[in-house]
Amino acid sequence: MAYNEAIMDHFSKPRNVGEIEDPDGVGEVGNPVCGDMMKFTIKVKDDRLDDVKFLTFGCGAAIAVSSKVSEMAKGKTLDEAMQITNKDVAEALGGLPGNKMHCSNLGADALHKAIEDYRERQK
């Protein structure tokens, strides 16, 4: 397999899989044509991410990225979570294969969308 141990670990034992009922924010990215889709749901408490869950349709890298982002974001303040970039996630996983950097590395985008959705709802 072309993936490193960290990716294989998150792929085979993904953290925070699921969909939060009655979420405070929802973020979706991707489509089946490109091969990857991610849906993040969040719970916010005192401006912090109290819970983060994801659903992902996609390849090994997409699943590992989703899992890693959820782990990195949980417990962070919203502003801190907004600072997480796709590049940070790839680095935290010890690097993604070059051809997977664009299509599968959308986890942070999906998380940011969920936070933006939450902020929109607060207005």
């Binding site: 397999m1 792929f11 390849c59 997977k100």
Partner: peptide, 23 residues
């Protein structure tokens, strides 16, 4: 579900297949 993820799990179970997925 997506083919590469299937293929990787099957590989872990010692089953080797192929897929026409993008990934």
């Amino acid at each position: 579900v997506e083919g590469e993820a299937l293929l990787m799990h099957l590989n872990m179970a010692g089953i080797y297949v192929s897929s026409g997925s993008t990934c």
